[in-house]
Design a protein around this nucleic acid. Structure first.
Length: 268
DNA sequence: ATGCCTATTATTAATAGA
């Protein structure tokens, strides 16, 4: 089973790129972020023609998240994170697919920092941590995948000094990410590739992709049962070089075979 | 310190992204 996350940066403007990548990569589950489309303008028909069922949470102009599943329809379990009822930004969606609970998220950018947007990012992170702790307590197989807008360590930034005061790299935000992971999650890409420079985002500015001036900000976190079945993890970085590309590249993990629809049977 | 580039929305300029 292959689970991917892809910040598409506009699901309609980027539809040819998305369909081309789906056909090539054949992921079983995809979390999309930055749909930049209201609920009624999600291209469900084109995605269904490509062989994927979908559940999505749109928003006019910005944000927006979706979960796609190959050959089936994801079973929705949640829209939005608890903890701030007045929050109207579409940044979290969750569904059950193939015996795994998949949470797709788009964490706030938070710039400029300090300021109200940074405060919102920290509050959103706190809500995510509270909710994620509850998921772990339920002992179900879970993957939290998305654009976390955090570079966890210096290894995840082409030039750390340049980013020290940025909302994606400030100590508070890195601490929040570390605390989340320390609940018992596995950062799949880093776990399978320790010490390796891995980027998932390259700015449109200054030929960032050509210079490989990238950031690792798209992450897949696995609960313990899922982590036990982790086989592979990678970034489809060539997609960033395509015509009309998103500034993010698809990031994915491959898991061992799911043993039946009730869930996975742990190895050992 | 700022713009660069790219998108959306609404009217050619503003806002957001990271």
């Amino acid at each position: 089973m292959k689970i991917a996350t892809f910040n598409v940066n506009g699901v309609n403007g980027r539809l040819p790129v998305l369909l081309r990548w789906l056909a090539e990569a054949q992921p079983d589950v995809v979390c999309l972020q930055e749909l930049k489309a209201p609920q009624e303008r999600f291209p469900a028909a084109a995605i269904e023609d490509a062989g994927y069922g979908a559940t999505w949470l749109g928003q006019k102009s910005w944000n927006g998240v979706a979960i796609l599943a190959k050959g089936t329809t994801p079973v929705p379990t949640r829209r939005g994170l608890p903890g701030e009822p007045e929050d109207e930004q579409s940044r979290y969606i969750e569904a059950a697919v193939g015996g795994i609970l998949v949470g797709g998220l788009y964490l706030p950018n938070g710039n400029p920092a300090p300021g109200p947007k940074f405060d919102y990012k920290l509050r959103w992170f706190a809500r995510l941590k509270a909710y994620a702790a509850g998921l772990l307590a339920e002992n179900v197989p879970v993957v939290l995948a998305g654009d976390f807008n955090v570079m966890p360590t210096d290894l995840d930034v082409y030039k750390p000094e340049r980013w020290r005061d940025d909302a994606l790299f400030r100590p508070e935000v890195r601490a929040a990410y570390a605390e989340l992971v320390d609940q018992g999650w596995t950062d799949c890409l880093r776990h399978l590739h320790p010490g390796e420079r891995i980027y998932t985002f390259w700015d449109y500015f200054r030929n960032a992709y050509g210079r490989d001036a990238g950031l690792r900000i798209d992450h897949l976190l696995a609960s313990p049962a899922v982590a036990d079945d982790l086989l592979e993890a990678g970034v489809d970085r060539h997609v960033r070089g395509w015509e009309k590309a998103s500034d993010h590249a698809p990031t994915w993990i491959r898991l061992g075979e799911v043993e039946g629809s009730a869930g996975r049977v742990p190895r050992r």
